[in-house]
Simulated scan of single mutants.
Amino acid sequence: MRIGMIGCGVISQQYLASFDQLPDVQLVAVADLDPARAAAAAEGREGVRALSVDELIADPAVDTILNLTIPAAHADVDLRAIAAGKNVYSEKPFAVTTKEGAEVLVAALAAGVLVGSAPDTVLGTGTQTARAAIDEGLIGSPIAATATMVTPGHERWHPQPDFYYTPGGGPLLDMGPYYLHALVTLLGPVASVIGAASRTRDVRTIGSGPRAGESIPVSTDTHVTGVLVHESGVLSTLVMSFDAVATSAHPIEIHGTEGTLAVPDPNRFSGDVTVHRLGGEGWEPVPTAGGYEEAGRGIGLHDMAVRGPELRASGELGQHALEVMNAVLESAHSGARIEIASHVARPEAVALEDVRAAT
């Protein structure tokens, strides 16, 4: 796959660091609304050209667009790329509204192109080892799960945090995709949700960078909770906060009839998986048993290039997670239980593999 990257902001650095180690994909062009940022991203990279957004989308040397724009632009950029006959792979969230995300999938199907969606962290050894443990029956039949992400807010460290506090941001749409993609990978798709949410402050103060001390408005919920009813009957409880200080909870815990599994941070590719068995005396390590070893952001593009329509970090998964998250927010404001219309197959497990061996 020949990749054209649109958006050269903070997250692009992690993708750029991975490209040299990824087989089956080649970065050939970059673009940004700020030409200087695009030029800086291309500098020192042989064969990588800095283009305008329009030039990159039209470039015949590019067959796949890596969309790293802000969330509000994800669907628009994806649709433009699809109209130009390109595959697309979007950063999370897949779109801002469920309707926008559905339009991207419809357009891609009509055009016969592939659609992928971050996060691809679920393809690493952390989530995949937990997946293998569940599939092997280590904790018996899954009953419930908890997913917890607590931080006092990204404005404390991010120099340009504005979009985190607008629709499409907030703790749920910003961090929720990591947890939703992991929960669906581990436990299957979601059938319905119930949510509650709050917003403790209408203004945030930037804590670092050239804008330190500047106040920015908050127009989205900053503490969100939800109960997700999986199609399997498993109940997942979600807590996503930009308001709270800290937590001692594991990022994800899967509770089964024969034990509880602690799953590492789904914002990371690796991490220790531990199990507390029924009748056991404490947490025990689970040996690494699945996933791409030493993976970094962009491994989903490799998976897409190799597997084609069977890619694991798919647009369908991204859209399902988006619908679930927006349904939690809708439920929080309406007080009603919301049924989830989309269905996505539980992605196929990843066997333990060091993708770098193929480079």
Rank of each mutant, 00 (worst) to 15 (best):
M1K: 07
R2K: 14
I3N: 07
G4D: 04
M5C: 05
M5S: 06
I6H: 00
G9M: 09
Q13M: 13
F19N: 05
F19D: 09
D20C: 13
V25A: 11
V28Q: 06
V30C: 05
D34M: 12
A36D: 15
A36Y: 06
A39F: 06
A41F: 04
R45G: 04
E46H: 13
E46N: 12
V48R: 04
R49V: 09
V53F: 05
V53Q: 13
P60M: 08
D63F: 02
L68M: 14
T69D: 05
I70C: 12
A73T: 04
A75Q: 03
D78V: 00
K86M: 05
E91N: 14
K92P: 03
F94P: 01
E100N: 11
V104Y: 01
A110D: 15
A110W: 01
A110N: 12
G124Q: 10
G124I: 04
G126T: 00
T127S: 12
T127D: 08
Q128W: 03
T129I: 04
A132C: 10
A132V: 10
A133V: 01
I134R: 05
D135I: 01
L138G: 04
I139V: 09
S141K: 15
V150F: 05
R156C: 07
H158G: 01
P159V: 02
P161E: 12
G168I: 00
P171K: 03
L173A: 09
L173E: 06
D174L: 14
G176M: 08
G176Y: 07
L186N: 10
S192E: 14
S192Y: 03
G195Q: 05
A197P: 00
G207D: 08
G213N: 05
G213C: 07
S215T: 13
S215D: 15
I216P: 00
V218C: 07
H230P: 00
S232M: 07
V234Q: 03
V239G: 08
V239Y: 11
I252E: 10
I254T: 01
G256E: 06
T257K: 11
D265K: 07
N267P: 03
G271S: 06
G271T: 03
V273L: 05
R277T: 09
L278Y: 11
V286W: 07
Y292P: 01
E293Y: 06
E294S: 15
G298Q: 02
H302Y: 15
H302A: 15
D303S: 06
V306Y: 04
G308A: 13
P309G: 05
A313P: 02
E323M: 05
V328C: 09
L329C: 03
S331W: 02
A332V: 00
G335W: 02
R337M: 14
I338S: 10
I340F: 08
A341D: 15
H343Q: 14
P347R: 08
P347L: 09
P347V: 02
A357T: 14
